[in-house]
Simulated assay, not measured.
Amino acid sequence: MSLFIETICYQNGEFRNLELHQNRLNKTRFKCLGMDDEWNLASILPMPETDLAEKQKCRIVYGEDFESIEFLPYQIRPIHSVRLVEHNSIEYKYKSLDRSQFELLKDSVAEDEIIIVQKGQITDTSYSNLVFFDGENWVTPSRYLLNGTMRQALLREGKILEEEINPKDFNKFLSFKLINAMMNLEESPELDISIIC
């Protein structure tokens, strides 16, 4: 049986973007597993026995039922170099526990992280969506592998714009950030566009 994951940020006594995570989880269970019962994460998830101010990663592994729920401290990984990697067949529409395709791509380069290019378009890194700063606006690629919950939230709030981005567009951007459930626009470190090779 296929297993899937949800990673939810828990901080200051709250689960971040819980509605978006719940929608994705229920959609995944329906589309991939044929399960039409909807889970209510707010009534299911336990509260961690940790300092409420410390950011925690709530990692849920599930299939037809819950496999595990764990809370782990979260630290943002430092990134100093990024490699563009062309891969037209990789798919990650649903947040699967099996991440071997990303691990293989990352193992093929010496840089800290990869940006996956599909059919000439920028998509995502191995674990996040992307936003690029043009001096005025933060822009996320319209082509993505996974429509992340933070990406959805930032678009909905009007904090980022969406447009097609390809590598030749990099000269119009000054910097970029990685965003995911654990890193919003303010928390994610701003990286110089020049570190992408």
Results as ranks from 00 to 15, higher is better:
Met150Ala: 06
Val109Cys: 09
Lys159Thr: 12
Ile115Pro: 08
Glu111Gln: 13
Asp112Phe: 04
Gly120Asn: 01
Leu145Asn: 01
Ala153Phe: 15
Val139Asp: 00
Gly148Thr: 00
Ser142Gln: 15
Asn147Gly: 12
Lys119Thr: 03
Asp169Glu: 10
Glu113Pro: 12
Lys168Gly: 05
Thr123Gly: 10
Ile160Met: 04
Glu157Asn: 14
Ile165Ser: 06
Tyr144Thr: 13
Glu111Lys: 04
Ile114Thr: 01
Asn137Phe: 14
Asn137Leu: 14
Lys168Val: 09
Met150His: 06
Phe133Ser: 06
Val131Gly: 09
Arg151Cys: 11
Asn171Val: 15
Met150Val: 05
Arg151Pro: 04
Ile160Val: 15
Leu161Arg: 15
Leu146Pro: 07
Asp107Tyr: 04
Val117Ile: 13
Ile160Cys: 08
Val109Met: 05
Ser128Met: 01
Leu155Lys: 07
Asn129His: 03
Ile116Phe: 00
Glu164Phe: 08
Asp169Leu: 09
Ser142Tyr: 12
Pro141His: 10
Thr149Gln: 12
Asp124Gly: 05
Glu136Trp: 06
Ile116Trp: 02
Glu163Asp: 13
Phe170His: 02
Val131Ala: 11
Gly148Asn: 00
Asn129Leu: 06
Gly135Leu: 08
Thr140Ala: 14
Glu163Asn: 07
Asn137Gly: 04
Ser128Trp: 01
Arg156Leu: 15
Phe133Ile: 07
Leu130Met: 02
Trp138Asp: 01
Arg151Thr: 07
Val117Lys: 02
Phe170Glu: 01
Asp107Lys: 14
Leu155Phe: 00
Ser142Ala: 15
Ile115Ser: 03
Gly158His: 11
Tyr127Glu: 00
Lys119Ser: 15
Pro167Gln: 08
Gly158Leu: 07
Glu136Met: 09
Pro141Thr: 06
Lys172Asp: 04
Asp124Thr: 01
Gln152Arg: 15
Leu154Ser: 06
Pro141Asn: 05
Asn171His: 15
Arg143Pro: 04
Ala110Leu: 08
Phe133Asn: 14
Asn166Trp: 12
Ile165Cys: 06
Asn129Met: 10
Asp107Arg: 15
Arg156Cys: 15
Asp112Asn: 10
Glu136Asn: 13
Phe170Tyr: 00
Asp169Tyr: 13
Tyr127Ala: 09
Leu154Arg: 05
Ser128Val: 02
Tyr127His: 12
Leu146His: 03
Glu111Phe: 01
Ile160Asn: 02
Thr123Leu: 09
Ala153Ser: 15
Ile116Asn: 01
Val139Met: 05
Glu111Arg: 03
Asp124Pro: 06
Asp112Gln: 03
Thr149Cys: 11
Val109Gln: 11
Thr149Asp: 08
Asn137Lys: 07
Phe170Asn: 05
Val139Thr: 10
Asn166His: 15
Glu162Ala: 14
Asp169Gly: 11
Glu136Gly: 11
Phe170Ile: 11
Lys119Gly: 07
Ile114Gln: 02
Asp169Arg: 09
Ile122Pro: 04
Arg156Trp: 14
Tyr144Ile: 13
Glu136Ile: 12
Arg151Tyr: 10
Ala153Met: 05
